[in-house]
Design a protein around this nucleic acid. Structure first.
Lengths: 480, 308
RNA sequence: AGCUCAGUGGAUAACUCCGUCUGUAGAGCCUGAGACUCUUAAUCUCAGGGUCCAGGGUUCAAGCCCCAGUUGGGA
């Protein structure tokens, strides 16, 4: 933006990139590919011509369905010569536009430029010059929006994608508004080098946001319900493969057994010759005594996996947005492939379990469609003391319940239930005012900090009720 | 029927509100032999409306039903034909109270617009007050007169077709309150001051933009108004819904036996069980805001003309 | 079954829909993934896909605004 027209490749749109189309305030995420039709805002076109241009370029869509870069030079300063003082003489009879529906359609069909059509509309309006200066301005703005529609291609980011999802598919992200997500990332102290636990059902948007803030440094364990994590939005970020090497996932359905020490791998393939640790686990679990994952072993295997690039491969499988190009190469998974894949999965699972078992995560972020109480009570077990956690919920009541339960249980302080309101403004000379107030529908947050739970350690229940209030009092004094 | 007095039964010439449910309703002028189509079928005025009590459930020709409601200024605000943007009841409520309107108040208003606020003012100041309303757009002024007559409140209101900034309200020292809803309110503050009673009164100006407010406040100060205060009011509506959140499956069934004995009193045991949540769904009622966001209407600037 | 007149309520996902409680970002179908057993497949679970038909006019410099047009629905 500093005027350096660098040919550096990072800023250039390339085939295979994940990009975002933007028109006014509407976004759509796409995979950049040649000869593929895209439908956006009821226009269809191909992105071929965009390849090689830098991100941020604005394009016009030709009638042939191609993109033409639009230079933003001449904003013909339409000097308003005449303007009325007020609207007392304007009568709404619907007859002030001399161009008919067919006339306008003909202009469009002839391929006349939007700018020219707008000029025609102004010239054929009998009321335009009687409108006030402000009304004229508003009229032009409205017509430009209709006839000079352009699209801009931008690089995906948390800002872009969270705005896009909230506007386009809010139900898929449980109405997590972008300002609320911003709060979560800050209060969660998300940064490079952390070891974060994430439990989200927001299409992978929250995971992606965390990965962006961690920049590939540190590790993330994603807890997921059902058969596997959902990462549709994560793939839209277009992260490099290295970002996925320290991304782990772990099924929610194994959390209780992990906590109780009965965790085992039931469906482990019989021949797991390489990883002795895995073999031991599977054997052990069959026997009487449940064997917990050994810390040393898992750390070892963690390093091994960090070197190969399996995670990346897995991500590509998650990517088939609307891609049909890769379909062909996707040979119907032979049983051998399938088995191999499963083995890899088991390996990663063991590693994730090991990471969790250390119970030293640097933070916990929850944003799901599930009731947060059981999630929070269990997952906080994996977090080190003196670390922040953030829980998002679309509704207030479950978080109130979380608050109550956590206060009863102890081990957390500084609990805060919050909601942010967001409003944007029109700022024009003599015409400034708020536009929309977005409140209530952006969800609620419960934030807090873990501490060493002494009442539990001592095993003395009676002491708990006495200690809580005093410690809270002290905290309050410190804050003032 | 009258906008300032409830009547029991529907009569010829009344303006009644046909209520279809949701936000869906519309006004109807009751006429002998008149017919009104709804999505539930036809309503025949002579047999279905005239003589019936307000609040009746009327069965339409298709078997569906509607309610017929007595008009109120609030229902009128939601059903009147728009000639301009209008003020809604949320803003109107604040204006009415902060202008200290009550039966007997004399009020000056400009512009009249579509008459949404006018109807509410008239209701409040009746039966002994009076509204002087000024509108510079001729067609709009005429339409307003017509509506007031139709709603049988013509005796409480005087409509003038003139420019309040140039010509004021046409009276002096009679008003308890002045309301301005015009693009350049600062140009009308002088007239507003002279139309208020000598002993004083209240003024309110409605403007969408903050720059208008700044100019208006300066003008109010120059003319000696006191208690200058600008407010904005937003309505937040909640829909009451039953929410059903799934309880996550943490695998409780598998390792359940061992966990019962967790010697350390590991709090994880309290997970689903102490939360009182069984596998399945947790249900509760909640107020959920509608998806539409609250839009800005305008700033309300109030001030007092006092003797001192 | 076709035509004319008047009034009423709808057009968003590739397609089809969405309730008289102030219930239109909610679904069905489709496609894909996982699970499962009853395996050219069934079932279950999850996921992917949304910015509101089009033109004009008008409100203050905030639309819960208006008109005619297209399409289909009901008297």
């Amino acid at each position: 933006m500093e005027g350096s027209p660098e040919p550096a490749s990072p800023g250039v749109i390339r085939e295979g990139d994940f990009a975002v189309l933007k028109r006014d305030e509407v976004f759509k995420a796409v995979a950049v590919a040649r000869r593929r039709k895209i439908v956006f805002e009821k226009q269809w076109f191909c992105l071929d011509n965009a390849i090689g241009h830098i991100y941020g370029t604005t394009f016009e869509v030709t009638s042939g369905g191609t993109l033409q870069p639009k230079n933003r030079v001449q904003e013909a300063a339409t000097e308003t010569k005449e303007a009325g003082a007020d609207n007392r003489n304007i009568v709404d009879d619907g007859k002030s536009q001399k161009l008919t529906h067919d006339d306008i359609k003909a202009l469009k069909d002839k391929g006349i430029k939007g700018q020219e059509i707008v000029q025609q509309l102004i010239e054929n309006s009998t009321t335009f010059r009687d409108k006030t200066e402000f009304a004229q301005h508003k009229y032009i703005k409205k017509k430009k929006k209709k006839y000079e529609a352009v699209i801009t291609i931008v690089k995906p980011s948390t800002r872009i994608l969270s705005t896009m999802y909230y506007g386009r598919e809010p139900g898929k992200i449980n109405y997590l508004r972008y300002d609320t997500l911003a709060q979560m990332l800050t209060w969660g102290n998300v940064r490079a080098g952390n070891k974060m636990i994430v439990m989200e059902t927001c299409a992978g948007l929250v995971l992606g946001a965390i990965m962006e803030r961690m920049g590939g440094y540190g590790s993330i364990i994603q807890m997921y319900p059902g058969g596997g994590p959902v990462r549709a939005a994560t793939s839209c970020f277009g992260f490099p493969g290295s970002f996925f090497q320290t991304l782990y996932d772990f099924p929610l359905s194994k959390v209780d057994s992990l906590l109780s020490g009965t965790f085992s791998l039931k469906k482990l393939p019989l021949e797991s010759e390489e990883n002795t640790a895995v073999a031991e686990e599977s054997n052990g679990s069959v026997d009487d005594k449940p064997v917990s994952v050994q810390e040393a072993d898992t750390e070892c295997s963690t390093e091994i996996v960090a070197e190969d690039s399996q995670p990346e491969e897995q991500e590509i499988m998650d990517i088939p947005t609307e891609g049909d190009a890769f379909e062909g190469s996707k040979a119907k998974g032979t049983t051998h492939d399938k088995q191999k894949k499963q083995e890899e999965r088991q390996k990663k699972l063991i590693e994730a379990a090991g990471l969790l078992k250390e119970k030293n995560a640097d933070g916990l972020i929850v944003a799901s469609r599930f009731h947060p109480v059981p999630l929070l009570l269990s997952l906080l077990e994996f977090v080190a003391p003196s670390r922040p956690f953030v829980v998002y919920c679309q509704y207030k009541e479950p978080l109130v319940e979380c608050y109550t339960k956590l206060r009863e249980k102890g081990g957390v302080i500084n609990l805060k239930l919050s909601e942010t309101w967001l409003r944007n403004y029109q700022v024009l000379p003599d015409r400034s005012h708020p536009k929309l107030m977005m409140s209530g529908a952006g969800g609620y947050l419960l934030t807090g900090i873990t501490v060493i739970n002494e009442s539990v350690k001592s095993g003395d229940c009676s002491g708990q009720t006495d200690e809580e209030p005093t410690s809270k009092k002290r905290k309050l004094q410190e804050q003032r | 029927m009258s906008f300032i007095d409830y009547r029991e039964t529907i009569k010829e010439g009344d303006t009644a509100i046909v209520f279809l449910g949701h936000e869906s309703m519309f006004p109807v002028k009751v006429q002998h032999g008149g017919k009104t189509q709804t999505k539930y079928g036809v309503i025949r005025h002579s047999t279905d409306l005239i003589g019936k009590r307000y609040g009746s459930k009327v069965t339409c020709s298709k078997g569906g039903w509607v309610y017929i409601l007595h008009p109120t200024p609030e229902l009128w605000t939601l059903n009147l034909p728009h000639r301009t943007q209008i003020l809604y009841s949320t803003d109107i409520s604040l204006i009415t109270m902060m202008l200290e309107l009550k039966p007997g108040s004399v009020v000056c208003e400009s512009g009249t617009g579509s008459g949404s606020l006018s109807h509410a003012i008239i209701r409040t100041i009746a039966p002994t007050g009076h509204l002087y309303t000024v509108e510079f757009h001729q067609q709009r002024a005429e339409k307003a007169i017509e509506e007031f007559e139709e709603h049988k409140v013509g005796h409480l209101v005087t409509v003038k077709n003139q420019d309040v900034c140039k010509n004021g309200f046409g009276i002096t020292h009679l008003a308890d309150a002045v309301f301005l809803d015009i693009p350049s309110p600062w140009e009308a503050i002088g007239h507003a001051k002279s139309v208020l009673k000598r002993e004083g009164g209240r003024i309110c100006s409605f403007s969408p933009c903050i720059e208008q407010v700044q100019r208006t406040c300066l003008a109010l100060e120059e003319h000696g108004f006191a208690e200058c205060n600008t407010l904005e009011i937003l309505l937040r509506v909640y829909n009451v819904r039953t929410i059903s959140l799934p309880v996550p499956d943490l695998g409780k069934g598998i390792g359940g036996n061992a966990r019962a004995e967790s010697d350390k009193g590991s709090p994880s045991d309290q997970g689903a069980s102490s939360a009182g949540l069984q596998q399945g769904n947790a249900q509760f009622k909640s107020g959920v805001p509608p998806r539409e966001m609250v839009g800005h209407t305008g700033y309300l600037t109030f001030a007092t003309k006092s003797l001192f």
